[in-house]
Design a protein around this nucleic acid. Structure first.
Lengths: 342, 342
DNA sequence: TTGAAAGCGGTACCAT
DNA sequence: ATGGTACCGCTTTCAA
């Protein structure tokens, strides 16, 4: 039924030129007379010719494909990052292959082997939700294949893209200060997570630059990221005296638990204690009150990682080291809009 | 530094055999003496030879790659489905390419053109969140390329995979009946969504088979999937008399709004009115009370779609028509555990 | 400016 | 049971 796809050779024959000529016009290379070029272009159009990328790839040793290797395809944060990667890859005409390793080294080994066999041009290692630093790739990555870590903490000799947790925390606390809060608590994440340290530092810096005292009793890590544990941790914070008037939570889930605890204690948000979260998951905006939170720049992180490897493909090896992408504060109803007079 | 990758030819030379022989052992084809086979295998191992998939693909006209084309990569339901596809594809040794069209036909056209140039072996059209039927692919898909719709409503002549919305709704209502509920309301989704009809039917069937009367005043569609609109809609349901003792909501978000309205009315969940949702988003389990809900079989849907196209690649063209994947009821705390005596 | 031909790294048919 | 070799579809010297 449907004709076999036209090949370059078919076009050449039909246009009465050599295949090399067709190839030249196809790639916009010089050395083709205007008349001939016109004719070839016309023929290409007539025959609906589309070059076979595989053949081209075989010849020039490029697959125009990069791969995202992740340990958790269903991770809460993966979509947005993937979209960022896909977006810039698309613009560059390269495809994005997906790989889920389930965090299993053996599987990662197999996946990488296969990807390398497929001649992927570059690799992005993306974390779904990782605690601690990732091990080096389960298979040595050949020199020519650029790779970057996306939301992964690992060997500093590889380029990696991370959110600016510290900056985000600073912005959150600064906002709280502006709204008049003075006793600002930090309901932090479990301490073994990398981001936890960074957010603590941001908190501390922001307090310091506002001339506010740092108090150990105002900082408590939650046992996990679960709202339930946050609920418990918030209990301690609520026992502080003098009482706190704001709490910065290291995630939206934690904030959910915190809000719950605050209400349970007969207090109001934001009138009695203001709350700001981190991540800006969709639940943040739907919560009551809508949660002021620090948005993770996932899309931009994906784009950044994509650009890095794309540049890498074009020769500029990604320079090692960490890129911190700024987080944006989204002010909503769980904090007061402006400073309140004394 | 790193040696160029060994090729089949290199192996042949080193093992003192013809390339065709190496190819034979590589593909486990018969017609190779045991001794020679041994030697070749050994050489392959020694040289760390791995066949170039691109070259192979060029020759046998297969890329061992399928593509997921979606209108919304960040859709709430996409991850799990993608993982299902990736999972079965992986087992079959085929890669999964990702494409986001943003629901834009022009972009879809460009994407498909590119994918076809890349010789993808099959296509899965996946919806992020679609209302109504999708248009046919923006580019005619060649005969040899199997395709399936995943969570897409569209041309019935293409194989498509959908959740069994009706069955899920039936199960939800049946559960409510078992727990003793008699005045069961349906807080449905916006009526222009396909699933809304199906869930209504399930509700009706389940009620009928329980011998319970159907009452128009107990069925109200929400203006949108937003919890806020559900809150409003729930107001009407709460005004019914005699009062309802349970509500089946067509989504977890709707259920969130419903629970809120119920509480606002001074009623308790599940003591006064039981609530069941649909989807089983992560918020369902974290909600208070934890939400009984009908889980969308996203992973299995992805697997199913994957298997369909994979079979298609191997010759068995996916038979047209809709596959309904069963939904599973997850009983939690927003419904009573068992029937309560009179 | 244009064409011929040698690959890229495999597969598969045809001899031997 | 093996080897030789013509492709797959495109790029890229090298000559003309």
């Amino acid at each position: 039924m449907s004709e076999a796809r036209a090949t370059l050779k078919d076009v050449a024959r039909r246009a009465n030129v050599a295949v090399s000529t067709v190839s030249r016009v196809l790639n916009g290379r010089p050395g083709v007379g205007t008349a001939v070029r016109e004719r070839v272009l016309q023929t290409i159009d007539d025959m609906q010719f589309r070059p076979n990328t595989i053949a081209r790839g075989l010849r020039i040793q490029r697959s125009d494909t990069i791969a995202i290797v992740t340990d958790d395809l269903e991770g809460i944060f993966t979509n947005a990052m993937m979209r960022g990667v896909e977006e810039v890859a698309w613009e560059a005409g390269v495809g994005v292959l997906l790989c889920n390793t389930y965090g299993d080294a053996e599987r990662e080994r197999a996946q990488l082997a296969r990807l390398l066999d497929k001649q992927v041009d570059a690799l992005i290692f993306m974390s779904g939700n990782r605690v601690g630093r990732r091990a080096e790739p389960a298979v040595p990555i050949p020199d020519g294949v650029p790779m970057v870590y996306l939301y992964e903490y690992g060997d500093p000799s590889v380029a990696s893209v991370l959110p600016d947790d510290q900056g985000g925390a600073e912005a959150a606390v600064a906002h709280l200060v502006e709204t008049g809060a003075r006793r600002i608590a930090l309901l932090n994440g479990p301490s073994e997570w990398e981001a936890t340290q960074d957010r603590l530092h941001g908190y501390e810096r922001s307090l310091a630059s506002a001339g506010l005292p740092l108090s150990d009793e105002l900082v408590v890590p939650s046992a996990s990221w679960d709202p339930e544990d946050a609920f418990a941790a918030m209990g301690m914070l609520l026992a502080a005296s003098p009482p706190i008037d704001a709490v910065f939570c290291a995630s939206d889930d934690l904030a959910t638990g915190a809000v719950h605890a605050i209400r349970e204690a007969g207090l109001r948000v934001p009138e009695d204690v203001q709350v700001v979260g981190f991540d800006d998951r969709s639940l943040a905006v739907h919560q009551r009150p809508a949660l002021t939170t620090v948005a993770l720049p996932l899309l931009e992180m994906g784009r950044c990682a994509g650009r890095l490897v794309l540049d890498g493909i074009n020769g500029e090896a990604p320079v090692p080291g960490i890129r911190r992408i700024p987080c944006e504060l989204r002010v909503r109803a769980s904090t007061r809009p402006k400073a309140v007079g004394p």
